[in-house]
């Protein structure tokens, strides 16, 4: 290292006041370029997970205890009626997205 002690490292012959803030700015930009994509990814992934979960919930009428409006088809838990409810819910899945 070309600096004998910490003090001269900070001072850098008078130029430290330019060099260190510059490197701090550089670090900020690098951090922005790391943090911003990761935050965006987290947001999108949670969004997709939430939408996938909502779609799954709509496909299973038995588990509809979340206060949604009652689907008349839910009264019939027979498989035959499930056909109709899945087509209806698949339509709403498309609308919801």
């Amino acid at each position: 290292m070309y600096f004998e002690n910490f003090a001269s490292l900070v001072d850098m012959g008078g130029h430290g006041i330019y060099v260190w803030p510059t490197y701090a700015l550089g670090l900020l930009v690098i951090l922005y370029n790391i943090v911003s994509p990761m935050m965006a990814r987290k947001k999108i992934v949670t969004q997709i997970r939430r939408q996938a979960k909502a779609a799954n919930n709509r496909k299973k009428p038995a588990s509809s205890d979340t206060g949604r409006k009652v689907n008349s088809h839910e009264q019939f838990s027979a498989n035959g009626q499930q056909q109709a409810s899945t087509t209806e819910s698949s339509r709403t899945v498309n609308e919801g997205e």
Binding site: Y2, M12, G13, G14, H15, V19, Y23
Partner: peptide, 17 residues
């Protein structure tokens, strides 16, 4: 570059930028 290079003859340490 920041720590282990010699200072520049003309610009001193600011060239590290």
């Amino acid at each position: 570059g920041l720590l282990f290079t010699p200072p520049d003859y003309l610009q001193g340490n600011s060239y590290r930028i």
